[in-house]
Design a protein around this nucleic acid. Structure first.
Lengths: 213, 213
DNA sequence: CTCCTTGAATCTACGCCGTAGATAATTCAC
DNA sequence: GTGAATTATCTACGGCGTAGATTCAAGGAG
């Protein structure tokens, strides 16, 4: 930009992968996923767009990096905890991590992640299950069922999250009386509102009841 | 393109919303979501890019349209069917519709859809639940829990689907021995493979057992 | 101290993208 | 026949991701 070319002097503000990921997450939080561009991100960092490529493999790799930052925020429960409590704590930790950055959460929920960071929570679930004597195949089935539910609920929850102003659920269901959908009409009051917290506990309880009774 | 300007003569090949959506779905099937552009789609239709805007509100609306096409392929089970059977049939119908177009499925699974098409399956689930005497709030909770699971499983299933060549699951788990993740290592054989059919039935059974016993 | 390799930041340029706005050609209602 | 509406095309703008060349300081080799 205004800056000179060439390698930066020793004391200059150093660009680094960590700084880039942090700023990228901030950008997503503020303006949403679709607003992310290498150029805009570089502008925020006061740097030439192409400089980013010295620290990150491209836009896709950048977004993978942001996803890992989100995942790293999930705390692993202490080892002594009981089975069901462990699984519940991890589910809630996952949810909290996503709700902390609703606009960025789709990066975790929709991308196939291949990093080690993603395996820490897996270990935290599988460990207690195996220790409790579950056969490994059944443990993996359980893990996958819970994870599927988590991803689905959080996708709903996260894109219903208010971006900045308060336009939430209402208004999405126009008057349907006489639309040939009697059950929808009958349940309309309950369809119109959605307490995500309640829905989350409802589904999670069913699954955990079946898996860790 | 090579064609003349102005309104097309009465007999000419007419561009229409339906033709556009159909070609768009074909394009997604062949090249994936990220390859979709108004220009490329227009090229396939032998038409100027801007012509599309006479039938579709923009790229986003186009993709919403494709999503609706997918949703419309879910059959509603006949009215006489039992409660659990109905819900199971709808879940399997949803899955089949998504697996029929794995690259397009994220359009349904990740976008907030506001169309009437999306309400038909909802009616088909809610109807039997209410008829069976479920209080509407509980019916809605159940619907949402199952839907969350469906979305989560299908997202996994659909982006594991082979794009064209046979590179499936294996190879994603490098050797982790000595990585400090003993449970992951112990369950590795089961983590490495994923029979989506089995996983689907496993989770669905748990949920339906709890909701329609 | 000098020379050279190497790493990081910059600059330029290319080919895409979505779509606003103007223009032309045809049909339809009257 | 005449005007309004419909639809396709053309042009143009600003933004995008990133390949490739260039510049310059830091740090090691002699």
């Amino acid at each position: 930009m205004t800056a000179r070319r060439g390698r930066p002097p020793r004391d200059a503000d150093v660009l680094s992968r960590a700084r880039i990921l942090k700023e990228a997450l901030a950008l997503v939080d503020e303006e949403g996923l679709e607003a992310v561009s290498m150029r805009k991100l570089a502008r925020r960092l006061g740097v030439d767009p192409m400089s980013l490529y010295n620290h990150v493999d491209g836009k896709d790799a950048l977004l993978d990096g942001v996803a890992e930052v989100l995942l790293a925020a999930i705390p692993s429960p202490p080892p002594g905890t009981g089975l069901r409590e462990t699984m519940s704590a991890l589910a809630h930790g996952f949810r909290a991590a996503m709700l902390g950055h609703p606009r960025a959460a789709p990066l975790v929920l929709t991308r196939r992640l291949a990093s080690m960071t993603a395996l820490a929570p897996v270990e935290a679930v599988l460990g207690p299950l195996l220790a409790a004597g579950y056969p490994p195949d059944r443990a993996v089935h359980g893990l996958r069922a819970v994870l599927a539910f988590l991803i689905g609920t959080l996708m709903r929850e996260v894109d219903a999250a208010p971006t900045f102003s308060g336009t939430g659920d209402p208004g999405r269901l126009a008057d349907l009386t006489g639309s040939g959908l009697p059950a929808v009409v009958a349940a309309a009051p309950y369809l119109a509102v959605c307490d995500h917290e309640t829905e989350f506990e409802f589904g999670l309880d069913i699954l955990l009841d079946a898996l860790a009774p």
